[in-house]
Design a protein around this nucleic acid. Structure first.
Lengths: 130, 130
DNA sequence: ATCGTTGCAAATGTTTTGCATGTCA
DNA sequence: TGACATGCAAAACATTTGCAACGAT
């Protein structure tokens, strides 16, 4: 179990910088495009590799849209949370749900299921888009 | 708005029959394999087309697993519901969640979101696998 | 005889990987 | 220098689509 050093490359910094400025979930391709628009040339596979690394380090959240694409966004909160996403503009709010978590445990228990886990995403139209 | 007739083909019957016997979510490839095992030769694209048709007719539920594959299963209930899936054996229970639905509406309202929608899947280990 | 359906092969689109080359520490 | 990182092309996947042949009505 030796730690693998992580090197600070131009590409890694560029991806992190884009993620910092992103207030909504975006696909790898969108992030790749954003990099190009900033004049930062980064290979698409490098974008994927860096996003994966950020996700492994719990620096970004991942979710899948209806088309099955993986979307990425820097997380604000470290704790377990869910996302309320505007279906128009993509604006995202992180929400905690103690009541939901309790409900999940209860439903599991009712059916004899243990070690419960869950995935939940909320969608709606925000007041600026409504 | 004229209705398009739907023809009863051997392939369509075979796919429906497999879905009837399936008590867990399965991928298109698994369903294709199940058809082969039954001695029913059905092209993979036909499987996809028929599963899509069944989903459009709300005869089967669709969900995406972690790998991004779409899984299919005949629905028991017509109303809105969620799935509690055993991560070991795939056994699935359909659950209704009035409390959850209320929670969703409330969270949306708190942040000024309207026309709320949500996706939720529950995973756990069932008593037979625990 | 229609016209929806099928099957195959080819296309699509996202994500991953092999490998030679580049570059941070 | 040496190990990790990158870039490109190619591979790997699930899924969709074009099109000629098929078959239900």
């Amino acid at each position: 179990m030796t730690e693998t050093p992580i090197r600070t490359t131009r590409q890694r910094r560029a991806v992190a910088a884009v993620m910092d400025d992103l207030d909504r979930f975006a696909s790898a391709r969108e992030i790749h495009d954003a990099l190009r628009d900033r004049g930062e040339s980064v290979g698409l596979s490098t974008v994927y590799r860096n996003l994966q690394a950020l996700a492994d380090a719990a620096e970004v959240d991942q979710l899948r849209n209806d088309e099955g694409e993986v979307l990425y966004r820097r997380c604000i909160t470290d704790n377990h949370h869910h996302h309320l996403v505007c279906r128009e503009c993509g604006r995202t709010v992180e929400v905690q749900g103690p009541a939901l978590e309790r409900w999940v445990e209860q439903v599991g228990a009712e059916h004899g299921f243990r070690q419960m886990a869950h995935t939940l995403e909320l969608f709606g139209t925000c007041d600026q888009c409504g």
